[in-house]
Every structure is written in C-alpha cells, then in structure tokens.
C-alpha cells in the first residue's frame, strides 16, 4: 500500500536513468543517496546537458520544500532520541511526509515505529523500482501515462488529509498558484505554490478565529 503510488514514478526515474548521460550505476546510487524522485529526475535529465553546478542548483530548488517538511514534523521529534533525529531525515520524502504528518501527535514510540517502518519500506522499495525502471522501463508504452500516478496519489492524500476550511484554502491556493506558476524554471512553481498555500491557510485560520471571537462577543452581549 505504501509503495503502490510510488511505483510508477520509480519506473519513470529508472527509465530516465537508463537514457541519461550519467552512468546508470551512479544514477542507481543516487536513488539511495539522494532518494528524492523529482530531484533525481531533474538530475539525470540535465546531467551532461547542463553545467554540474546548474544541475545541483536545479535539484536544490526542487528539494526546497523538504525544509518545510522538516520544520512541520519537528514537534514530533521533541521526545525522540538523538539517533532518531539524525536518521529520520534521510527518508523524509513527499510520501513519507504525507503519511507521518497525520500521526505527529501519536505516542513517541508508536510514531517512531511507524516512521521507520514506512520510511524503510519506501527506501528499499524505491531501489527496486528504479532498478526495474532501468531494466524494463524502455519496454513500457508511454501511452500508459504512469508518470501521472503520483499526481493522482498526492490528490488523494490532500483530499483525505484536509481537516478544516483553512486547510482547504491552503490546498486550493497551493494548487491554483502552482498551476499559474507552472512555466517557471526548474519546477520553482512547486515552491511558489507551496508558500502561497501555507500563507493563505494561515490567513484563513486567523480570519476564521477572528470571526469566531466576534460571534462569541455578540452572543455574550445579547445574553447580558
């Protein structure tokens, strides 16, 4: 279940590695060392085409959202041992964040077990998927649009994960701004959409609170 949505993406990355100017074995090493689908895809696509520093810069821009993930999950690590804090970041990818962000308030031991199980499964599974992509990827028809599967998965996660109106505002604004900014270089639209969505969600939260407080004051005034 954890791996199902990431499988097509892994195959696509593996296929891109097989077509890259980067040695295939090194692309596979990147699956373990970098472990970030979109950044890997950019890295292997641009390798040999752009300057090395431009490839690194593009991958960094794409992975900027991981800073937000790290800050968002930080409260759950307050009661985690030091070793966990240093190991956990290696698997903090999109799917992992989506899975664990709904369990941040769980018991520390239960959270740790779930985090390591999900992250380990994703990390090991990703190695097999990209390897399979390198080997059999070129035989899969592009008409199947397997590269679209991650969008479907993230869409499902957003819809299931939205808890209130302010969350919904964050998602709608993130989606809309992400679409408007789609032509920005190096998929910078992801970061722009994310920042806009978080800001909108935060403002919506404040607005809803203020209206709630206003309504309480009015009710008290009427009752007295």
């Amino acid at each position: 279940m954890v791996l199902a949505p990431a499988t097509p993406f892994g195959l696509v990355v593996g296929l891109a590695i097989s077509e890259s100017e980067m040695p295939a074995w090194l692309g596979q090493v990147g699956s373990f060392a970098v472990f970030a689908g979109a950044a890997q895809l950019t890295m292997v696509t641009l390798a040999g085409v752009s300057a090395w520093w431009a490839v690194v810069l593009a991958a960094m821009v794409i992975n900027l959202r991981h800073v937000m993930y790290s800050v968002a999950v930080a409260p759950a690590f307050t009661r985690q041992p030091a070793w966990m804090r240093f190991i956990a970041p290696t698997v903090l990818i999109d799917q992992q964040f989506a899975l664990v962000s709904q369990r941040l308030d769980h018991d520390p031991a239960a959270f740790r077990t779930y985090y390591l199980w999900a992250g380990g499964t994703l990390l090991v599974g990703w190695q097999f998927m990209t390897l399979a992509g390198i080997v059999v990827g070129p035989t899969i028809p592009t008409d199947w649009r397997l590269g679209f599967a991650p969008a479907v998965m993230f869409c499902g996660l957003v819809v299931i994960g939205v808890k209130d109106a302010a969350n919904a505002v964050a998602a709608i604004v993130g989606l809309t701004v992400g679409l408007v900014a789609i032509d920005l270089r190096d998929r910078l639209g992801i970061v722009v959409g994310a920042v806009a969505g978080v800001t909108a969600g935060y403002l919506a939260d404040l607005l809803i609170d203020r209206r709630g407080a206003g309504a309480s004051v009015s009710t008290s005034a009427v009752q007295s």
């Binding site: 979109a38 959202r65 937000m68 993930y69 800050v71 968002a72 409260p75 999109d94 964040f97 989506a98 962000s101 592009t142 649009r145 590269g147 679209f148 991650p150 969008a151 993230f154 869409c155 996660l157 957003v158 994960g161 939205v162 302010a166 969350n167 919904a168 964050a170 998602a171 709608i172 604004v173 993130g174 989606l175 809309t176 701004v177 992400g178 679409l179 789609i182 998929r187 639209g189 992801i190 970061v191 722009v192 959409g193 994310a194 920042v195 806009a196 969505g197 978080v198 800001t199 909108a200 969600g201 935060y202 939260d205």
Partner: peptide
C-alpha cells in the same frame, strides 16, 4: 510558525499535483 506549518501538507501536495498534472509526457 506552528500554526502556519499545519498547512504545509495540503499546500505542498496540492502544488505537487499541479506540477505533475500540468506537464505532459
């Protein structure tokens, strides 16, 4: 900041949907 971080999940994942869905093969 903690309050803003509550919206990171929906916002980032939605932006990722846009980035994947709006770029063809």
């Amino acid at each position: 900041v903690a309050r803003a971080m509550r919206h990171v999940g929906p916002a980032v994942l939605a932006a990722l949907v846009a980035s994947i869905a709006a770029v063809g093969p």
